[in-house]
Write a protein that binds this DNA or RNA. Structure first.
Lengths: 358, 358
DNA sequence: GCACTCTCTTGAAACCTTTCATCCAAACTC
DNA sequence: GAGTTTGGATGAAAGGTTTCAAGAGAGTGC
């Protein structure tokens, strides 16, 4: 079935100004249906004002010519796009894809589509995507930023592109933000470990440019202070990213320490790190939680199914995404919109990796 | 810092034709810099042809006006976009995000950006995204389709939007495709289980509209035939989707069977199902692999870290994505492009979930 | 001092759609 | 049957960028 032969190489020697021999436009449809441009446009945008007969003719013409509306032209004239974007830190982290699911849910309900972009924790990539999206005049941008003080990020709203920050609470008043209290999350994790009697506790996370990494560490320190211990007691293992592979690396470093200096518990900045750490430690012969208790963060679906089910700090992932999208929609449709900062509360889910088999 | 107050509600009674009081355009920049439109455009697109002095003036004007190029207009005139899209089945499945990583790698090398879309195994969503992307005139579409016979999908290339099918080998000659031999993958899994002496084997997967589900099952059947067993021996547990939750459901059903009718091994259409199945079976008291051996598919990162490390059929995920993107780039830049069908070979990775602790 | 290059810059046309004021004809009103 | 309303169709203008043929100066060679 060589459907495409008909269209292939309609002319080898291209005409001068024609960059693409693309599809038929409204003009061609109008000609074929024997009506004016305006009528075709009406069929597209206000079908109810055109008589059924005419509409049928136009629709037939569109079908037979394979008409595809040129969204660039539409947008140029109409000034608005029906797209919103979510720039996430890492598509490989189920936490973010769950947030994305919430975003898509809310967007779909409002008749919008969502484009996903991944910065992969790379500031240049993030910047490139922000530029691109602004140039595309998307309706709005949801972002989990690497650096929340980026000037690029702050300039966007004043130029007409609404921004909602997800999973970070911004100090800046020019955006809405939706976050989970990461300091509290860190406290929950460490208090739990202290209650279990651990004294040498490690914090595994990095790089220290990521807000979540910092807040969760600060929460951990605060829990130590509250318990009357010096914050210096927290042994910090800095990683290069929040991935399973980096978690394994941290496991390697931990397991290499002599038993009397090795921490008895580790709190990881996210579940990917925790899973990597867990895997490496187990394969190097450390028992979890007897030799090393582990607490993760995010409570992704895989935390429960892990080799040793993982204690973790749970965040309302989809709700986070949905709320963020709703704030964005409000901002772009409600003239009386006021920026809000929504903060959810995390919750500790205790499993075998800290509590043992009891 | 009320940065946005300056811009807020510049005029309550909007002027008639102005849909958005958006940014300054080339025209404003040209006026501010005291040059013509064409020169501004040259600074943007061919900076080398404009004199350093003029360029500096224009750049200063752009900065002070906060100029943001209107991509819709650019695209309308230039006819081409610098974006390519990957429509994936499920963003929550690490397999697809790994493929996406490969795509982004290749795209970045070519100076393009990637928009990710998720059909969530919903044909309507997929169709809506395809329409949207075609209207956006993206440079090309990479897709793991739900239904590879969709007429919408087949029409795209003849209308000017190149399509590369990922993780499916299409019978159709109008696309390139990049796939892994799923029939062989199914065979590998079942042969392995047969070698271990299993007789009652279940296949867990669904819905049966998804190509991968069908091929892997067909491979399983073929392995049975090769071993001289009737294909009816394969006990099929059909799921509603390829998710951890559905895997748990299947586990529930399996564990409910009396021991003498329960399969001794299960081959799952992907790792998410396998992880869910594993988790549910373990929590219901079945031992893996003694009571039930499990083989997954994809060998995602979490398979190795599972409660019982998972035997799985590995696919070259990133390579898949990178190859697909490269084919797409070739199609849209090379006039002598010929459609190709690239097929990779999967590989069985044996772990504890079938082999026991030996 | 004239003809000629070469380097930059210019202005108008083109891309495709949407919008809106206007127009037309047929159907009512009295 | 003159005037009014109404349901539909029309066509020109606008939106911001890119392109390209042509123009303007400055410099060079003889």
């Amino acid at each position: 079935m060589s459907v495409d032969d008909a269209e292939a190489l309609p002319e080898r020697t291209r005409r001068r100004r024609t960059p693409k021999p693309h599809a038929a436009g409204v003009k061609a449809v109008a000609a074929a249906a024997g009506v004016s441009l305006g009528t075709v446009s009406n069929v597209l945008n206000r079908p109810e004002v055109v008589s059924p007969l005419t509409r049928a003719k136009v629709e037939a013409a569109m079908a037979s010519l394979g008409f595809v509306r040129n969204e660039s032209a539409r947008q140029l004239r109409a000034g608005s796009s029906r797209i919103l974007a979510y720039v996430m830190l890492d598509a490989g982290n189920p936490f973010f894809t769950d947030v994305a699911k919430g975003v898509e849910e809310a967007a779909q309900a409002a008749g919008l589509s969502v484009f996903l972009c991944t910065s992969s924790e790379d500031a240049d990539r993030e910047a490139a995507y922000l530029d691109l999206l602004e140039q595309q005049r998307v309706q709005g941008i949801l972002i989990t930023p690497i650096d929340q003080n980026s000037s690029r990020l702050r300039k966007l709203p004043s130029r007409g592109t609404p921004v909602v920050v997800v999973d970070r609470a911004l100090d800046d008043a020019s955006h809405c933000s939706v976050a989970v209290n990461d300091i509290l999350g860190g406290e929950l994790a460490i208090s739990h470990l202290l209650e279990l009697g651990h004294e040498r506790i490690a914090y595994v996370g990095g790089p220290n440019t990521i807000g979540q990494v910092i807040d969760r560490r600060d929460g951990a320190r605060r829990a130590l202070r509250t318990a009357g211990k010096p914050t210096a007691d927290l042994i910090e293992l800095t990683t290069g990213a929040l991935t399973v592979a980096e978690g394994r690396g941290a496991g390697q470093r931990l397991a290499g320490l002599p038993a009397d200096r090795r921490p008895t518990a580790a709190f990881c900045a996210n579940d990917l790190l925790a899973l990597g750490l867990l895997q490496q430690c187990v394969s190097l012969g450390l028992r979890v939680p007897e030799d090393l208790a582990i607490v993760g963060y995010d409570d992704i679906e895989f935390a429960e199914a892990a080799a040793v089910p993982l204690t973790s700090v749970r965040q309302p992932r989809q709700l986070l995404g949905r709320t963020a999208a709703e704030l964005l929609l409000d901002e772009s449709s409600n003239p009386d919109h006021e920026h809000q900062r929504v903060t959810f509360t995390p919750e500790l889910v205790v499993r075998t990796s800290t509590r043992g088999t009891l």
